[in-house]
């Protein structure tokens, strides 16, 4: 039976597939959005309030039972230290670090606290091939040393240079980083140790969405005090820790080139290609083989024919 495409079926099918296309596109677009964690907590760091007393460093050291440092926490000569001409960074014995900056346009120093920013879409988590990282509903990005292989890809992936490795240990060399005091405090509705210790209220703990509103409010009410930028609102897809500053962020050690989308987005091109190669390569190369084999067979038959012909001629 001959099938005919009437105008009606054409329209129906066309509309149907158009609708399907729209529906599908909407779906993929949605999956690219950052996951919303309505209960995600965070900390707003107001650098205009920080006096560099390092109480947070001391509190973190005690809470995480880290070895006591060579210099006491009230020793401020430490701010001049730093290896390779760069500022101090997090390492296996320091989950949080305060650094001093002296921007030329203001007459006083600014202090920047660094620790894990607990990203919304953590690069460490998405790069880990053993799922050692978890983003908890409270917003903490925590690490499980029991499955870690020690490949250190998370350290490559973290745009903030936070995860450190315990290189000195032969048997238990694990990744170390701020865990947002998840096991000891956050889970039990307690404030993180550093926040609790801050005498200046420079650290404000709360729901991330609320913190953004508070930060906006502070900027709006005191335009001379703040630059109009909440660092961490969009950087690397958004972080749980947010910063306010009185000078441009690149002057106080922040990387302002970090894209406003999750790090994972730059890897997605490759990840999308994988299933295509897995499915297209086998038939493609099997096809090449059949073509090559057929040509070889044809060549062989031709030669045989020629030989027979030559035999007949003789």
């Amino acid at each position: 039976m001959k099938t005919q495409t009437s105008r009606r079926t054409l329209l129906k099918k066309g509309l149907g597939s158009a609708a399907a296309a729209i529906f599908l596109r909407a779906k993929t677009a949605r999956s690219h959005n950052i996951k919303r964690y309505p209960n995600s907590c965070g900390v707003l760091v107001d650098m205009t309030r920080c006096i560099g007393c390092r109480s947070c460093e001391a509190a973190c050291n005690a809470e995480q039972k880290l070895p006591s440092p060579a210099l006491p926490f009230d020793d401020r000569s430490l701010f001049a230290q730093g290896r390779h001409g760069s500022k101090r960074r997090t390492d296996e014995n320091h989950f949080t670090v305060i650094n001093r900056y002296d921007p030329p346009e203001i007459d006083h120093p600014l202090f920047r606290k660094i620790q894990c920013n607990h990203c919304q879409e953590p690069a460490c988590l998405s790069s880990c091939f053993v799922n050692a990282y978890t983003k908890t509903p409270e917003g903490a990005v925590i690490y499980n040393p029991d499955v870690c292989v020690g490949c250190r890809t998370c350290m490559i992936a973290c745009p903030f240079y936070i995860p450190a490795f315990r290189y000195s240990s032969a048997l238990h060399p694990q990744i170390v980083k701020c865990q947002f005091c998840y096991e000891t405090r956050l889970k039990n509705n307690l404030l993180p140790a550093c926040v609790e210790a801050c005498p200046q209220e420079a650290l404000l703990f709360g729901k991330r969405e609320k913190l953004i509103k508070i930060a906006r409010h502070r900027i709006r009410n005191d335009r001379d005090r703040y630059v109009d930028h909440i660092y961490g609102e969009y950087e690397a897809g958004g972080t749980s820790w947010l910063y306010l500053s009185s000078v441009e962020f690149d002057q106080v050690g922040f990387d302002t080139t970090i894209p406003h989308e999750p790090i994972l987005n730059s890897v997605k091109n490759f990840l999308a290609m994988v299933p295509m190669v897995l499915t297209i390569w086998p038939p493609l190369f099997a096809g090449f083989h059949l073509l090559a084999a057929r040509r070889a067979r044809a060549e062989k038959t031709r030669q045989e024919n020629n030989r027979e012909k030559a035999d007949e001629d003789v």
């Binding site: 790069s127 053993v130 799922n131 890897v267």
Partner: peptide, 8 residues
């Protein structure tokens, strides 16, 4: 412990 979404 599998992390199939990672390149590694």
């Amino acid at each position: 412990s599998l992390g199939p979404a990672a390149v590694l």
